[in-house]
Design a protein around this nucleic acid. Structure first.
Lengths: 121, 121
DNA sequence: CCATGGCATAGACGTCTGTCGATGCCTACC
DNA sequence: GGTAGGCATCGACAGACGTCTATGCCATGG
């Protein structure tokens, strides 16, 4: 029997929000803190923030690795590395179509995070 | 002439939000990403999340170092170290009264972060 | 079936970071 | 003014992390 997850981005957004332990209302447990920190760590890096922003701002809502290397000025392995971290955190989805791998934002993940951090309610 | 800050938690909350470059609307600059990453890094650590939660959940809304060492199971220098990081990030305020140093959450900082990450406007 | 090219993985390396014990500072109180 | 105690700072150390080059995998097209 473990403490409930601070947020569950696998479930539906509504359920995820409902399940949230209010971060600012009562002390969270060590395991809840570890879970939330894992998610925040995925975002708390300049290159990954730029990746999130660059992909989210796209009209198509997605981008492949080769679209991102040049504007960010980093090598392809480095971009792939960061994208994997974002996918593992549930912030991005990965869709391989032919030779290309298309990455897209999961808005529910950002909204869940946003709701957790908000002090109002 | 530099790009506008992604968020300005020194200003009033309303102003801070107004000044926000929409993270998910257009690609943010490298310096904006660095600024936002600095703030997120302050939160993206299990111990610091527990500190935020523990202090925010207090009825008084504040706590001193000696209140926090025992429940978190860490030494006093370690707690002081993390509190300094949170203060430097603008997430906590520090108020020295006599021998004690009282730390309190800055709700506007959390709300500004929450607004930045939200995908719904 | 070979060549091309987009992407992931592996390994290496320097830097950053969380934690600790030791110590210094400063305020309150005898 | 000496002592006690809360807190900050220092220095050290192990582990985590971001970046790169090199290489491997695999789908596509001649």
């Amino acid at each position: 029997m473990s403490t409930p997850p601070v947020l569950n981005i696998q479930a539906s957004p509504a359920l995820a929000r409902a399940r949230c332990t209010p971060l600012l209302r009562e002390p969270i447990s060590a395991s809840q803190a570890a879970d939330l920190a894992r998610l925040l760590k995925a975002l708390a890096e300049p290159t990954r923030l730029r990746l999130v922003s660059a992909v989210a701002a796209r009209e198509e809502g997605e981008a492949c690795v080769c679209d991102l290397t040049e504007p960010l000025g980093l090598t392809q392995p480095t971009i792939s590395h960061h994208l994997k971290i974002l996918v593992d955190a549930g912030i991005f989805t990965r869709d391989k179509r032919g030779v290309w791998a298309y990455y897209a934002l999961v808005p529910e993940a950002m909204d869940a995070l946003s709701a957790i951090l908000s002090s109002t309610r």
